[in-house]
């Protein structure tokens, strides 16, 4: 892999700092285990960049299916701001068909998917349909793509949001349940007959969370400029907190180099507000 060595994005020196958007993508990338089949949907620049970072660092044996082109293990020269673009086919030996990908996801052949939402509840149910609910939305969001089907069947889900700090994203109850978490008002995944494992990780711009045995989000680590109290205040449900909450492990130079190499246009930054884009860490901070 040339990501760590070619000079296009500039070498990463140990004295360089890094930004929150870079660290966030690295934290997302670390949720991919080597050897997994991973997929992101459209409108997901952070997840999209993270999957390539994972493959170029700790998970070279993963099989990456690029969302919306269904290209297998492409090596894009850059990530464009639209996810159905030929740039995302680069050097892919094979491109799945739309049907082929979704069939694989439905029958359980896909290990991980990245999902986000305008609202996310304690169980990882997400709302990408409408704030205020349907049929009378206060804000009509874009919609869920294939999530209402394959969130039920994919092995594990990495849920993410860059808007945790708004106080409006992690909510007690989603206004519309588009994609499935661990427990819905109609029952658990097992009771509903769903075969996938559900949310495993929740990565936000405040920290990293996992899920307890009863399916609720639990805070594991925060970014160093964030306190546990801040996370609790920004969360609209009773938040479980691990006994030994730490800080999110720092990105390595190789991971930072991969982020910068994969994403020279900086599409990952489209997901963050101005105050989060200003967050800077590391020796040069």
């Amino acid at each position: 892999m040339s990501a760590q060595t070619d000079g296009r994005a500039g070498a990463v020196r140990s004295t360089d700092g890094w930004t929150l958007d870079e660290w966030f993508v690295v934290a997302l990338a670390r949720t991919v285990a080597d050897g997994e089949v991973v997929f992101h949907g459209f409108a997901s620049p952070c997840a999209q960049v993270a999957m390539h970072v994972a493959r170029r660092t700790h998970a070279p044996g993963s099989l990456l299916v690029e969302g919306a082109t269904y290209a297998v293990n492409p090596e894009p020269a850059f990530v464009p701001p639209t996810s159905n673009d030929l740039a995302l086919h680069r050097d892919a030996v094979y491109r799945m068909r739309f049907e082929e990908f979704f069939d694989a996801a439905c029958r359980g052949a896909v290990d991980r998917m990245f999902l986000s939402g305008g609202q996310i509840d304690a169980y990882g149910n997400t709302n990408v349909t409408a704030i205020g609910g349907m049929p009378h939305p206060k804000i009509k969001l874009g919609g869920g793509g294939g999530g209402a089907n394959i969130s039920a069947t994919i092995g594990a889900l990495t849920v993410w949001t860059t808007r945790h700090g708004s106080g409006r994203t992690l909510v007690e109850t989603v206004d519309f349940l588009t994609d499935l978490g661990h427990v819905t008002p109609a029952g658990t995944r097992a009771e509903l007959g769903h075969t996938g494992g559900g949310p495993q990780w929740l990565v936000t711009e405040l920290g990293v969370l996992d899920y307890t045995a009863d399916g609720r989000a639990r805070l594991l680590a925060t970014f160093p400029d964030v306190t546990v109290a801040q996370v609790e205040k920004a969360t609209g449900f009773a938040l479980a907190v691990a006994d030994d909450v730490g800080t999110v492990p720092e990105p390595t130079p190789a991971e930072l180099a991969a982020v910068r190499d994969v994403d020279p246009l900086g599409v990952r930054r489209l997901e963050f507000g101005p105050s989060d884009l200003a967050r800077h860490f590391g020796p040069a901070a």
């Binding site: 394959i150 039920a152 349940l177 588009t178 509903l192």
Partner: peptide, 13 residues
């Protein structure tokens, strides 16, 4: 038949 959907709010539409 189709996988998923059950437990989501899409069927309400």
């Amino acid at each position: 038949p189709v996988r998923g959907l059950l437990g989501t709010d899409l069927p309400t539409l």
